[in-house]
Design a protein around this nucleic acid. Sequence first.
DNA 1: TTATATTCCTATCTGTTTACTAGGAATAGT
DNA 2: ACTATTCCTAGTAAACAGATAGGAATATAA
Lengths: 145, 145
Amino acid sequence: MIRISTKGKYGTRLMVQLAMNYGKGPMLLKDIAAKENLSVRYLEHLIPPLKSAHLIHSLRGAHGGYNLTKSPAEITLKDIIRILEGPLSPSECVESPGVCDRSGFCITRDIWAELERTISNTLAGYTLADMVKKYLSTPHYGENQ
Amino acid sequence: MIRISTKGKYGTRLMVQLAMNYGKGPMLLKDIAAKENLSVRYLEHLIPPLKSAHLIHSLRGAHGGYNLTKSPAEITLKDIIRILEGPLSPSECVESPGVCDRSGFCITRDIWAELERTISNTLAGYTLADMVKKYLSTPHYGENQ
DNA sequence: TTATATTCCTATCTGTTTACTAGGAATAGT
DNA sequence: ACTATTCCTAGTAAACAGATAGGAATATAA
């Protein structure tokens, strides 16, 4: 199973919410969780990596919350997934040749490396701005407004 | 971490070995394991799914072994990975919309679906014949001949 | 200065998956 | 009968996934 975990999936939705709130002051995690129907307690864990990658900025205390550090057009899905999921390569040997003594002549390794490039390129093709635009032009029914 | 497991990785190497032996009669798992420096006991587990997908064929007993069921040019890496790793989509909601009530209007789901297409296309771009050709034109040093 | 709202840090827990190892049955040539 | 091989079923230790929880730190507001 080659799957993105909930970190990457929920984290993307969190970032889309922040993007929709861009320029409107800090947004509460509570509100993000409510809009996306996710647990505040779980979303909390996604914050530290996003902060240390300087994708978001926080304000503590009452009237605190979170902001994007740059405009939604400058943040791609690749940035988000890379931070929350770790390396985008399908095999460790791609980024760390030393883990396998076959790396120097392994033909499958070359293919995993190409696969990483196509994944990276696809994800880099979407900015948060693109996603907000699409979000706003899509009808939302049910509990998630 | 969006990683291919050892099933997919070792299974690909196993299939490349069978491809190199294509037309030369059944090949022993013992020999495949020796050439790829992998455990016979572990490779055994990769056989049943490959057989039920009709990618390989087996002969039991003494002088038994394994064959590809079709020519290396007709088997792609996508076939192999799909069988050994399961669905190629990065999220279950892509192939089973019912698992999430957001599927009807979720914008991230659309992106995961596109990601699946690019992964599929990349993997479908390699046949075992391509890999054998590349293998034979690459120098191999060390214990894996 | 107290109360309140919020982020922040660390720990814990349960189930699943991964990467194996192992025992021995079934089958087929010699 | 003997031997070589595939085949089938368990088991297992470690890591990972997907949470929940307690409470400290910080900032605003009354």
